[in-house]
Design a protein around this nucleic acid. Structure first.
Lengths: 337, 337
DNA sequence: CTTGGCACTCGGGAACACAGAGTGCCAGAG
DNA sequence: CTCTGGCACTCTGTGTTCCCGAGTGCCAAG
């Protein structure tokens, strides 16, 4: 059905279209790639490719443009991920290494990705549900008010102010803190609900009401914050792409946390790269855009995802290379801190 | 030089141009506003206004458009800040009241402002330098590693991992924490450097090296984070405005923290509203945009600033009203938490 | 199966004309 | 001195027409 030459033609079309942003015709193809056949032959192949929905012409007698299906085939079978240059690798490394805390790691990652790919970058904070507890701190603020701080092994910090039902002395707080930490240290966040069930039993009866209040806030924090935290940057690159049409929709989508999270998608393997092309992705405002995403994590556990978003007409091999590389480095940095 | 009628004409031009986005001519003015004079008279006034640089014509024989100088006069002398409707007030109140921590307050404020003004919203986190210490926490992570957590009276939390020169037992950490908190509690962040100078003296000699390390990181955090944290949102509104030209520049400016901070500008009084119109603002990429900003804070102290950014052709009275209202409510919320 | 030739189609730019909105100026009235 | 109506002038934006060129599909021959 699709012999090797037809595939080569499709590849050539995608490459040319990506680099020139103009519909590509049979003559130009024959000139720029040495396919060893004449334009007429290419035209026949193109007719076949169009027949099967891999390419299309914007109007009669213009060149051909890849369809989403065409890009899909290209990504799956016709392209190889392009590794970064060693200069780029070094740049990533030094740039990320300068970060002092999680916020800064994430922020720098966004900038890095955006700059490297000239696209919009999207980075998810290490997921709460997949992290574990490193420490729980209870800080007295006023007689009947404490701040609850939860620190995860990924460096993420959640804090909440808690109003207590009754005043409580500092030493009782200290005890509560010790018990909590004893129970929870190293506990996976998803196990926290079961684990804390034991806590009241280990406390003197008079502390239990206060503990209950604090624990309920703790659980609430976990549940409520189940919605993942996510940031993006590099929107200026959108304006540079010829986008204009639909730009508004894209910006709107980016500001919708929910859409953004679904966009990054479910996890594949840790260094699997997910590509969603145009209409494949789950939000109609993003019909003209593709998403290239990957998971990152330390060790072999995926903590969260990151990726870029750009016009379907993007340089997939290069973009995928950049996303993969950044994901790996972020994983390393997180593991080391 | 500028009699009342000329000012009325200018006001009418600004209002019409803002609402229609088309150069406004003498006839249209005479029709839509009852100025009581004929178009010819208005033409004479317009000639005078143009002479003095308040309005301009895009090309010969088009209507007039206000210049930056014209908007300035309008804002300073011809307009009154328009208060929000009570429905809007209620909406603000309930929306902001639902926030559980500082991050969420800021995030919601951004959304609120963006939605209310249909413009890009910019909100600065309560400034570190103008806050004071509520609590310092030192959390042991490993034998020679602790996490330093700094909580401010505005609810802001800064954390840093510190590698220690030598192992240290938990009870010594506890002592250090107690001393630190005793010294720093309630201390304005800008006074911290002097205040911590005493700390080593109050510690047993063997703890001093460790304390020195921790203190240096603490000071570093204060200095380094002197750069203020700032977020924005509502960029989709930019695309909706006819912007197109220069949009790229605007997006770039928004992603530059430094530019953004200077944009919000120095503090005036607490409920003073600052307006920067077009070329008045300090960044060339923003020639076509205006910034409306205000300080917010609890009590009478300004903690930080917030505002919106939009095309110079914006509805200043309404925008200023929204910014002022939001700033006040945010102040209240912060004071209450 | 490939190739060169050929007629056909269509989009986009250039040239042009035209209507409409708006101006500036002037002379006369209040 | 100020306001007004009239008038000639000057633009821009839009619609029309025309033409070129790129690119195609098809066909017959190698």
């Amino acid at each position: 059905m699709l012999d090797d030459r037809k595939l080569a033609v499709l590849r050539a079309i995608v490459e040319d279209y990506v680099s020139t942003n103009e519909p590509v015709g049979s003559k130009a193809l024959a000139d720029r790639h040495n396919l060893g056949v004449s334009p007429a032959t290419i035209r026949n192949d193109m007719a076949a490719l169009e027949e099967q929905g891999y390419i299309t012409q914007p109007h009669t007698s213009a060149g051909r443009v890849p369809t989403d299906k065409g890009y899909r085939l290209f990504v799956d079978r016709l392209s190889q991920i392009k590794p970064l240059s060693s200069a780029e690798r070094r740049a990533i490394e030094t740039f990320l290494a300068g970060a002092v805390d999680l916020d800064e790691i994430v922020m720098r990652t966004v900038r890095l990705l955006a700059q490297l790919t000239r696209q919009v970058a999207v980075v998810q904070y290490p997921s709460l549900t997949r992290s574990s507890v490193r420490h729980v701190e209870i800080v007295p603020l006023a007689e009947r008010r404490v701040m609850l701080v939860l620190i995860t092994n990924t460096g993420r910090v959640e804090q909440r102010v808690v109003d207590l039902p009754e005043p409580i002395a500092d030493d009782r707080i200290a005890n509560l803190r010790a018990v909590l930490n004893a129970c929870l240290d190293g506990c996976g966040l998803s196990q926290v609900p079961e684990t804390v069930a034991d806590v009241p039993d280990r406390l003197p009866p008079e502390d239990r009401p206060v503990a209950a209040t604090i624990l309920s806030v703790l659980l609430e924090t976990l549940v409520e914050r189940h919605e993942e935290k996510i940031v993006f940057g590099g929107t200026a690159n959108l304006a540079a792409a010829d986008f204009s049409v639909g730009l508004r929709d894209v910006l709107e989508a980016l500001e919708e946390q929910v859409v953004l999270i679904r966009l990054l998608g479910e996890t594949g393997g840790l260094s699997d790269i997910t590509v969603r092309i145009g209409s494949e992705n789950p939000y109609s405002g993003l019909r003209g855009t593709s998403i290239v995403a990957a998971g990152y994590g330390s060790g072999d556990k995926e903590l969260a995802r990151l990726g870029v978003l750009g016009p379907t007409r993007m340089d997939y091999p290069v973009t995928m290379g950049a996303v993969r590389a950044v994901a790996r480095y972020v994983g390393q940095i997180l593991a080391g801190s």
